[in-house]
Design a protein around this nucleic acid. Structure first.
Lengths: 346, 346
DNA sequence: CTGAAAGCGCTTACAG
DNA sequence: CTGAAAGCGCTTACAG
């Protein structure tokens, strides 16, 4: 096979100096239009492809970024990383994907390696609030973007799902459906994603002048079991004369647990109680006719935006601050009917 | 901040030539033990980190590989790609992740770019049988490893889940449980994964001298709906005097569809009919006590092994051929009880 | 607008 | 065992 054409081959054939060829091909510096055209034509004819290794060497830009995950196996991280690396690939940027598995020692090791790799930037994926400071304390010389749902100082580049917006949207949606006694069943306090959703939900309820049913958010876990337990509690309360006609659940597992409790007691969804979940992780597993109304945080888009932001930061065309990605609402039978039966879900 | 030490800094400080420093640091060529020790000590003292960009430039090894997915969004591809990129990251290899989205034009574009990137190798993820020939016809100059469940010529490097082995194991497991009338409900013929599972299952049944219930595999789709339809058919057949006491389903959706049909007709699982699924995609979504017996193809391990294989191929330490990854069996209530109820699943 | 030349930081024949 | 020198393929002051 014929050796690849180098830029000096192009220069020689086009009858110009290497300098001029470089300038013409990169569209930088003054080159007469005709010279430029001739060089470009020659390059195409010779099927010239610039050697990125040489270019990297001389410019110091590696066209490689680091993607550092707190835990790559997490449900949160995987689609996010995929979204990011896909975007990067499309932009012809390579990624060194590293999984710190929550261990600072591993993290520091990795940071050292990334430096030797001369990466152009770093994308940090995860929710560990300590991570940020760790990385920054290393005073990494390249831009760092955080893709995370936890709050991070406004001095960093951050991309995150809008949990607060989702909480607000959930309340507004249920109010719009005419529901008047809306509860919120959520996971543990101090989980930043939980807190943000609670805040948004509370805000929207207050704006509508509506108290939160059950006296406020019910805190528990992300497990279906908790959804069922919360459901029992709500049924008790209803038996005691406290009406509940809609629930915003912090994830789909809780939503299904609630439904299970209600169905066992003959309470119909959505006829008696409408349920909105969060995550849409069960899409593709659940039946295709959308049994559950839920919010899809669109994590691969979060990853994509974070990667885009990183390239902008490298290019100096963005400023620090947090960018939110709006979760998409997926409307399903748990709020608009017809009445759900157990086998309608899976 | 002080400039990074270069190799010539190390050489100067250690009082040796650049040549010797390079040899000592890379452990190549003859260098006296004391010289080597001195150089290494000096390098450590100066915190020398070799510039990988320079090394790549001169050696032509980019320490970057391409990861080309037929469709990165596919359920199959995502964990596989994550497994691969994680392994690569640990080995300090960057990846350009590209999603051809089934389009040959995009594919060829990407291959051109990867060449300009001077990648060290290529990992192709996906099941499209045309993909392989496409890539190879480009006579890519670097090693190519296929991570795929479709059959590929023995002249390539291939890593794939052992579908045949899983089919065999499913039959043997159900036979071992004492079941005697075992059916197989699967998806479409000519899907390579389906065919391999059918082959393995058929083989094990034949070895045990047992006919396949229902006269042979029941072909349909991967949808839960098909599982339910197949369940109805099996119930009819049972009503007609043809016993069935176990089923191997081609995926978990089918398994759940089967269960739904049986439960509606008062047929108990596993008491009357044991069910084994495939995929374990619902782990983490289903209840934690393993409602469903199923095979986990361990796709991230497939990706990991494929990446490992790619690095071996680049290093010349492996030979072409197919390596299988054994799916892991996850035992659950659908085969060992107690009797499953609808809400036990999700 | 164009070109000769230096230089990026390594590896590796080649010669001793 | 050790070293002087060439060279990898580009970019970019510097000089014209």
């Amino acid at each position: 096979m014929p050796k690849r054409a180098s830029m000096s081959d192009v220069a020689r054939v086009a009858g110009v100096s290497l300098t001029t060829a470089s300038r013409a091909l990169n569209g930088v510096g003054r080159v007469s239009a005709e010279t430029r055209a001739r060089v470009i034509e020659t390059a195409e004819r010779l099927q010239f492809q610039p050697d990125m290794l040489a270019r990297s060497f001389v410019t110091g830009r590696s066209f490689i970024v680091g993607v550092l995950a707190e835990s790559a196996r997490g449900r949160f991280s995987m689609p996010l990383i995929m979204g990011a690396t896909n975007y990067l690939g499309r932009e012809n940027i390579a990624a060194v994907t590293l999984d710190a598995r929550g261990t600072p020692r591993i993290l520091n090791d990795y940071l050292k390696r990334l430096r030797a790799r001369r990466i152009d930037g770093l994308l940090v994926v995860g929710d560990d609030p300590n991570r940020a400071s760790l990385v920054l304390s290393e005073d990494f010389a390249v831009p760092v973007v955080f893709a995370s749902s936890s709050a991070t100082p406004e001095t960093d580049y951050v991309v995150a799902p809008d949990n607060r917006g989702a909480g607000r949207a959930a309340a507004e949606y249920l109010i719009g459906l005419g529901r008047r006694n809306i509860a919120h069943v959520t996971a543990a306090v101090h989980d930043p994603a939980v807190d943000a959703r609670v805040d948004g939900f509370t805000e929207a309820m207050r704006s509508a002048g509506m108290p939160i049913a059950m006296g406020g958010p019910l805190y528990g876990s992300y497990l279906q079991r908790w959804g069922t337990a919360a459901g029992e509690r709500i049924l008790d309360s209803m038996a005691g004369g406290q009406p509940v006609d809609a629930i915003f659940a912090a994830n789909d597992e809780i939503a299904i647990g609630l439904f299970a409790a209600f169905h066992r007691h003959g309470v119909r969804v959505p006829d008696d109680i409408a349920i909105v979940g969060y995550d849409n992780r069960l899409a593709g597993v659940m039946r295709p006719d959308h049994p559950l109304s839920t919010f899809d945080p669109d994590l691969s888009t979060v990853g994509e935006r974070a990667a885009e932001r990183l390239l902008q930061a490298i290019g100096g065309t963005t400023t620090p601050g947090i960018h939110y990605v709006q979760p998409t609402f997926v409307e399903g039978r748990s709020t608009i009917g017809p009445t759900l039966e157990p086998y309608d879900i899976l």
